[in-house]
Design a protein around this nucleic acid. Structure first.
Length: 281
DNA sequence: ATCCGGACCTGGTCGC
DNA sequence: TGCGACCAGGTCCGGA
């Protein structure tokens, strides 16, 4: 998925096209993704004005004037494609198959926003005015907010026997991290992904908290990471993948200055972890 | 409560 | 060229 930086990048690309605009036309091309689409999706969206876009964790929310909120999650392969007057000559990536265009919105300015998701792990839902999804109640703090402090992280990890890698993927502990940025953060903090979450000293928790924030901010500044098929909403490529220190770099030398180790890949809880056994412990 | 494995999907790559 | 195995940025559920 698109992890937090990619969702934030999509949000920023989308905002100029959607905020303040009226959805003139809405189309749902299939009845479900991972879950059924709301049966009244098209009816509610048609004619609705988007008053603002927000992000919570990896969710995108579009607040509709008097009609609740459109909730989007990109899952693993979801994308939002923008086409309009300003990108009339935009050439579609041939890897993006039109058969996976599931929801298509057209604004009163003629811009088309398409939710495309090959694997259909994404979701599209509607929230009533003032409501929020049940899942939000279980989310941990936003890692870029003031709520995310070493004290909060230490309390969330306390007593947990699970590996720190798995703990950081748990959205109840901190919201928005995924497989890439967990590996990157742990490498920067010098923490072995296999270490028990509850057995990390206070100084290292502080370091980890800071590195999580830093790596996310750097990734957002770079427009996110483009792996295989993910694109920014604008169709441009984010370029943070060039700054990966360990993710998807099995066999490469460790980039830590002075470290002679190499990057290894292991599987934890069914997901790949990348790390350097020489400088992460 | 916590943890792990599997399920949900399609598509790309790699080895034979 | 074809085919099977395995991999992929996430989340949810059931069972141990």
């Amino acid at each position: 998925m698109p992890e937090l930086p990619e969702v934030e990048t999509v949000l920023r690309g989308l905002a100029p096209h959607l905020e303040g605009r009226v959805i003139a036309r809405a189309e749902a091309r299939r009845p479900d993704l991972r879950r059924p689409l709301p049966p009244d999706l098209v009816q509610v969206l048609t004619g609705a004005r988007v008053v603002g876009l927000r992000r919570r964790s990896k969710y995108l929310l579009a607040d509709l004037d008097g009609r609740g909120t459109l909730l989007l999650h990109l899952g693993m392969s979801g994308r939002l494609l923008i086409e309009g007057a300003a990108t009339a000559d935009y050439h579609r990536d041939p890897a993006i198959l039109p058969r996976h265009d599931h929801v298509v919105l057209t604004t009163d300015q003629g811009t088309t926003v398409t939710f495309n998701d090959a694997r259909r792990f994404g979701m599209v839902d509607l929230l009533r005015e003032g409501d929020e999804p049940a899942a939000f109640a279980r989310l941990g703090p936003e890692p870029l907010s003031d709520d995310f402090t070493p004290e909060v992280l230490a309390a969330a990890l306390k007593g947990r026997a699970t590996a720190i890698k798995s703990a950081l993927l748990d959205q109840r502990i901190v919201a928005g991290l995924g497989n890439i940025y967990v590996s990157e953060s742990l490498h920067r903090a010098g923490i072995d992904p296999r270490r028990a979450a509850g057995r990390i000293g206070r100084a290292r928790i502080e370091s980890l908290t800071a590195h999580i924030r830093d790596v996310l901010n750097e990734a957002i500044a770079a427009g996110g990471s483009s792996l295989r098929d993910h694109r920014q909403a604008s169709g441009e490529l984010g370029y943070f993948q060039h700054s990966f220190r360990v993710y998807d770099r099995e066999g490469a030398p460790c980039p830590t200055p002075g470290c002679t180790g190499g990057i290894r890949r292991i599987t934890q809880a069914g997901r790949s972890s990348f790390f350097c056994a020489a400088c992460q412990h």
